[in-house]
Amino acid sequence: MNDTRKRTAGYAVLVVAAGLNLRHPITSVASTLDAVTRHYGLGPPGVAVLSGLPVAMLAAGAVLAPALERWWGVERTLLGLAALLTLSVALRPASLTALFVGTVVAGLAMAGLSVLVPQMIREHLGGRIGWWSGVFSTSFGVSAAVGAGLTIPLVHLTGSLSLALSLWALPACALTAMAASVVIGGTPHRRAASAPAPSCARPTLLLGQVTAFFGAQAFVFFAVTGWLTSIYVDRGVPPMQAASLLALASIAGLPGSLGVSVVAARVRRQHWIIVAVSTGTVIGLVGVVWAPAVLAPLFVVTLGFCQGATFGLAMALIVLKADPSRPVAPFSAFAQGVGFALAALGPVLVGLVRWAGLSWAYAGSILIAVVVCQAIAGWTAGRSVVPTTSLPQPMEQPS
């Protein structure tokens, strides 16, 4: 294997490793939310803030990432963010203050990674954008599933909630090591001085449509991720079984995320795909909130598959709809930054509905309305076509 292929393989592994660390810091807490509430003595407002805080930080971090990338380059910035993620996840269970501070830092780091990886895909893996966008978004689902499914068993195994949450720093540490190997073993890509990267994306109707679609799907995803376990616990499902349903939803999203991303990259217009998966999301939400609990696996799988597909579409649209003549990072930063800012309202709003004593039907109705907005934004964005012939191929770098 020559040096170019080795570097390409290194970037491919880094894409997967990054994705595998972008959801477990959230779902590990979400799946143990009742235990976290008791352990740290959180009141209802604190729980609502803790649920929405990671998403709010995803918005802030998405805006900051392009500036860091201009100073340090994609690879070095990714290395620094991976190290921050490792430290924040390791230290946040230490106390109530550390829990909130660590959640802030972890959210910022995850946002930066999420913005930079699409740039890396187009620069170094551009020959198969649909495939690698799908792999990246699918690895999010794996991260979410593992975080949701293993945290409670880790609590039982270690006898400590704090230790179980701290152990999720290990995969982040592995990501840091991989990023360091790419930085040390290769020549980080830098843009020519005559073509500096823009600090922000040019506002266009298409950018607004992609942003609205990304924000709506993230709003629903994080609301479901934060509260699905509590919904089923309130409906009489044992806590461990309820947490396993959250893991099941994440697992069900894996084939949807990968398969739909690949299909989306092969067609010029994606609007019908977006409408189809949005319809499936509505069906899943209706089943989760109103159907008998005995049917939970059926509707959780439906919801998880369609949410995974929707997220895969959102990440693919960022790469596919960005101007091929300009870096994708500013487009990605705007879509994810504003989108996550909207999404931060999801878990907070659902939490306030719960603590106001209202039934889950109110929360379900809100989420269904957001999915309708998601379908409208996705329809308009998916119908738009941008030139694709000038997308870069994987770069050859000097040995």
Results as ranks from 00 to 15, higher is better:
residue 225 T to E: 14
residue 14 L to S: 09
residue 397 Q to H: 15
residue 166 S to T: 10
residue 131 W to A: 15
residue 100 F to Q: 04
residue 93 P to T: 12
residue 149 G to P: 01
residue 371 V to W: 04
residue 265 A to I: 08
residue 376 I to D: 05
residue 63 V to A: 15
residue 174 A to S: 04
residue 371 V to T: 13
residue 8 T to Q: 15
residue 227 W to R: 04
residue 336 Q to P: 01
residue 248 L to V: 06
residue 239 P to M: 10
residue 279 T to W: 02
residue 46 G to E: 10
residue 79 L to D: 01
residue 105 V to D: 00
residue 300 V to Q: 05
residue 340 F to C: 12
residue 263 V to P: 02
residue 85 L to N: 02
residue 59 A to L: 03
residue 363 A to Y: 05
residue 35 A to Q: 11
residue 282 V to C: 03
residue 275 V to Y: 02
residue 368 I to H: 12
residue 309 A to V: 14
residue 229 T to S: 14
residue 371 V to G: 01
residue 212 A to T: 13
residue 96 L to A: 15
residue 111 A to E: 04
residue 341 A to R: 10
residue 376 I to T: 03
residue 9 A to Y: 11
residue 155 V to M: 11
residue 31 S to C: 09
residue 93 P to G: 12
residue 307 Q to H: 10
residue 272 W to V: 14
residue 188 P to Y: 05
residue 196 P to C: 09
residue 269 R to P: 03
residue 145 A to V: 05
residue 28 S to R: 11
residue 330 P to H: 00
residue 246 L to R: 08
residue 113 L to V: 03
residue 69 E to K: 09
residue 322 A to Q: 04
residue 185 G to V: 04
residue 161 L to N: 03
residue 36 V to D: 00
residue 134 G to E: 10
residue 264 A to D: 03
residue 122 R to F: 04
residue 220 V to N: 05
residue 242 A to S: 08
residue 292 P to C: 12
residue 217 Q to S: 07
residue 268 R to L: 15
residue 157 L to V: 01
residue 69 E to F: 01
